[in-house]
Amino acid sequence: TETRTFTDEREARRFEQEARDNGKDVQVRESNGKFEVRVK
């Protein structure tokens, strides 16, 4: 599991989409204006 934290939602979404395109299981959590993207 890899976790990346972004402050920019667009960057978080781009990373999320890229991971999904690669067939990964992705979860995005938002807290305090930060976006935590977990990739399995």
Score class of each variant (00 low, 15 high):
V28L: 12
D8M: 00
V37N: 01
K24T: 04
K40P: 05
E36G: 01
G23H: 08
D8L: 00
E36V: 10
T5E: 13
G23S: 03
R20Y: 05
D8C: 09
K40N: 13
E30T: 09
N32I: 00
T1E: 13
G23I: 02
K24D: 07
D25I: 13
R20A: 05
F35K: 02
N32D: 12
G23A: 04
T1D: 14
E11L: 07
E30W: 06
R29W: 11
Q17F: 03
E30N: 08
V39Y: 04
D21V: 09
E36I: 13
V37E: 02
T5Q: 11
Q27H: 11
A12Y: 02
E2G: 06
K34Y: 14
F6N: 05
R4F: 14
V37D: 02
D21F: 09
G33T: 00
V37H: 00
R13Q: 09
R29G: 05
T1K: 07
R4V: 12
F35D: 02
F6E: 04
K34R: 12
A12P: 01
E2W: 07
V26K: 01
T1L: 10
N32G: 10
V39M: 06
A12E: 02
A19I: 04
E2A: 08
D25L: 12
V26A: 07
R29K: 12
R20Q: 06
K34T: 11
S31Q: 11
K34S: 11
A12R: 01
V37P: 01
R10G: 15
K24H: 14
T1Q: 10
K40E: 11
E2K: 08
R14T: 07
F35V: 05
D25W: 12
E9V: 06
E16W: 07
V28F: 15
K40G: 13
D25V: 11
T5V: 15
V26L: 02
D8I: 00
T3H: 06
G23W: 04
E16Y: 06
E11W: 00
G23K: 05
E2Y: 10
D21A: 14
R29N: 09
T7P: 09
V37Y: 00
A12Q: 02
D8A: 00
Q17H: 07
F6L: 04
V39I: 11
E18P: 00
R4D: 06
N32C: 13
R10Y: 14
Q27P: 01
N22T: 09
R29S: 12
V26N: 01
G33L: 01
T5F: 15
E18I: 09
F15E: 03
E2L: 13
K40T: 15
V37C: 03
N32Q: 06
R14Y: 08
R38T: 15
Q27S: 13
A19R: 02
N22R: 13
D25Q: 12
